[in-house]
Computed example of a mutant assay.
Amino acid sequence: MNRTDLPIAVGVDGSEPSLRAVDWAADEAALRGTALRLVYASLWERYEGASLAHDLGKPSEEVTAEEIVDTAERRARHRQPGIKVTTDVLPEEPEYVLVREGRSALAVVMGCRGRSSMAEALLGSVGVMVAGHAHCPVIVLRGSHDNQARSGARGRIVLGDGEEPTGSAAVRFAAEEALLRRVPLEAVRAWRRPAHATTEHPLIVGEPAHQHEQEAVEVLAEARRDVQADLQVHRPTVEARARDALLAASREADLLVVGARRRHGHFGLQLGRVAHGVLHHAACPVAVVPERE
């Protein structure tokens, strides 16, 4: 199947965050001219939300899987009337279903919802599992506490550059998003002085410190080789931990894109500290893009 023919898959469960994910994914499908696939997967859980049960006029325990996907489908068609929408209900664990869906999807989109009150502000275990193992980009809808998706409010895409960004899937994905939305791409590169040194040490004041910053600038310059010439790219370098720099940048971004490199072994793709941190704490939607070795 040609990449442009692949759908955007959304994990839906009737919750407010998943309905917000449907909105965002519908906008993305319209931008890319592709189909939207809505999937409800649950082996044993029942619907626990409030708004959908209220709209249907029945107790939450009586909301069926079919009503969940039907509601999501109506919402997507109302949001973007011209897109093709398909639905499916699968009696399986959602993390395994969504990882499998990612093998034949352009991207997988999820709402940010923990499975307990302690995890309310963080990403749930399903999101971590899918982002860490999917074969396609996984977008997690962070940055809002209501059920409304706000597309393009800030007018920029932020890319977190890794050590070897040239030719990376994350760079290409971020550039595509910026071009589709007609907004600048901001490629953030964090740098730090040697951990064993202090700012007062005479060997790292002035020129040595500048050298670390210059190396960061050169890495970003290499990354631009994969970006179309007509795309406006800003490339700030920040003296900070990468996680902190990207969390700060996410406050003014519509989408934060990070790469995740596959490590061979039983557990497949694992999230690094930076990807894990931004998935839990970013102030905007986060796209985790798998990098092929």
Rank of each mutant, 00 (worst) to 15 (best):
L31K: 07
R32Q: 15
T34K: 04
T34L: 03
L36A: 06
L38Y: 12
L38V: 11
Y40R: 13
A41K: 00
A41D: 00
L43V: 01
E45W: 05
R46I: 13
Y47C: 05
E48C: 06
A50I: 13
A50T: 14
D55R: 15
L56Y: 07
S60H: 15
S60E: 06
V63K: 06
T64K: 14
T64G: 08
I68D: 06
V69Q: 01
T71C: 12
E73H: 12
R74W: 14
R75I: 08
A76M: 15
H78R: 15
R79N: 14
P81M: 13
K84I: 14
V85C: 06
T86V: 10
V89T: 05
V89A: 01
V89L: 02
V89H: 00
L90D: 01
P91R: 01
P91E: 00
E92V: 02
E92Q: 02
E92S: 01
P94Q: 07
E95C: 10
E95I: 04
Y96I: 03
V97A: 03
L98S: 05
V99W: 01
R100E: 15
E101F: 05
G102N: 04
R103L: 08
R103Y: 07
S104W: 11
S104V: 05
A105S: 10
A105F: 04
A105W: 06
L106V: 11
V108L: 06
V109G: 09
V109N: 09
V109Y: 03
M110F: 13
G111H: 01
C112R: 12
R113M: 03
M118H: 01
M118T: 06
E120M: 04
A121M: 07
G124I: 02
G124F: 02
S125E: 08
S125A: 10
G127Q: 12
G127K: 13
V128H: 15
M129C: 11
A131T: 11
A131W: 06
A131N: 09
G132L: 10
G132C: 11
G132Q: 14
H133S: 08
A134V: 05
A134Q: 07
H135Q: 08
H135N: 01
C136I: 09
P137R: 14
I139P: 02
I139M: 04
V140E: 10
V140N: 08
V140R: 09
L141T: 01
G143P: 04
